[in-house]
Design a binder for these strands. Structure first.
Length: 349
DNA sequence: CAAAGACA
DNA sequence: TGTCTTTGG
């Protein structure tokens, strides 16, 4: 439901500035952000290989996290990283499908490399990213040195983040898609990156993107939905991580119309059963999916606190253990220290 | 992706 | 000074 629901909401998407999030606790879906870095931070010359150190450890994500965390922390944002635990059984088919797509992309990359088409190889390489234990471990080391709390969710990070939102323990969840609203997340921040420009998937065109805040209640209001159940129904119709295709031939507009017409799960599913047959349009009983979104596996007793970054150790890890350029790292960390000192002074006076 | 370099 | 290109690991 990544982009499909975006077409339905306009007013409830608020353009914000990164400074609006100062002092706010923002949770990040760790695998999500790491995956984004693994995909985008790659070596063009080798046809899309990761950045690595001399020992072959992947460093693409460390590079991305380093600059991203510096910037977020400089702005006074308090990040929390949530790592996925065991995927729910509902996700098995989707996981397999992603695996197949990666294998396919890897094959195409090989072919492109053989033909010497490095640009095509790069494109396919980006679709092959896989998060290994080493990648996770290094990410956790770096985040720890930054004093950023790490949460190991029992299952889906988005579900855990949504729970923390409901408990009021965090201000917002950083996510590119809208799925966490189905889990009851109340606030989502999108496009929380540094650069305000993003390449359009089409070709060599760039667009301006600024962070945007979406609030669940406003979104429900704009859509004309009465409650979260109805939003979950909408999600099931257009597709979620657990039924990615949604219903063939039913786009966002039709989906919304159907939810508004039938209003509750029983009536909607009854209609769908008569029209299509529930078995043919859902991989699982839609009632069980609905129930899953209502009540996902999360941990309720989490406590976390932010600590000060250990600059010396960050530098030591990146430079001495992962082959980063000393001057670059030093310069960035100095800037960080300077700006955060300035910020505390500003607050004081 | 984000910073640094090149260039007008 | 702002924009486009190259580099980073």
């Amino acid at each position: 439901m990544g982009t499909k629901i975006a077409s339905l909401i306009i007013k409830s998407r608020h353009e914000i500035s990164i400074t609006d999030l100062s002092e706010k606790i923002i949770a990040f879906d760790a695998y999500n952000i790491i995956y984004a870095f693994l995909s985008s931070i790659r070596n063009k010359e080798s046809g899309g290989g990761y950045f690595t150190d001399a020992d072959g450890n992947v460093t693409s994500h460390l590079n991305g996290l380093f600059y991203r965390m510096n910037n977020l922390l400089i702005h006074g944002i308090k990040p929390v990283f949530i790592f996925d635990g065991e995927p729910p059984s509902f996700k098995a088919a989707e996981i397999q499908s992603r695996r197949d797509k990666k294998a396919e992309a890897a094959k195409k990359r090989e072919e492109a490399l053989e033909e010497g088409d490095f640009e095509a190889a790069m494109k396919y390489a980006q679709a092959t990213s896989r998060i290994t234990p080493q990648i996770v471990q290094d990410a956790k080391i770096l985040l720890n040195l930054y004093g950023i709390p790490i949460i190991d969710a029992p299952s889906e990070a988005e579900a855990q983040g949504s729970h923390l939102l409901q408990q009021g323990k965090i201000y917002a969840l950083n996510s590119q898609d809208y799925d966490s609203f189905l889990f009851g997340g109340t606030r989502i921040v999108r496009n929380l990156a540094i650069s305000q420009r993003r390449k359009v998937p089409g070709q060599s065109r760039w667009i301006e993107v600024s962070p945007e805040l979406i609030i669940l209640n406003e979104m429900l209001w704009e859509l004309g939905l009465k409650n979260r159940d109805q939003l979950i129904l909408l999600g099931l119709l257009i597709g979620t991580d657990y039924n990615p295709d949604g219903i063939k031939g039913v786009g966002p507009k039709t989906a919304l119309k159907l939810v508004l017409k039938y209003k509750n799960p029983e009536k909607l599913f009854e209609y769908l059963d008569v029209k299509f047959g529930l078995d043919t349009i859902f991989p699982f009983s839609p009632f069980s999916l609905l129930d899953y979104f209502r009540n996902p596996n999360v941990e309720s007793e989490l406590l976390f606190q932010h600590r000060s970054p250990q600059f010396q150790k960050i530098q030591q890890f990146l430079v001495e253990e992962r082959g980063f350029n000393r001057d670059r790292v030093e310069k960035q960390l100095l800037l960080f220290k300077k700006k955060s000192e300035q910020k505390t002074l500003d607050r004081f006076f």
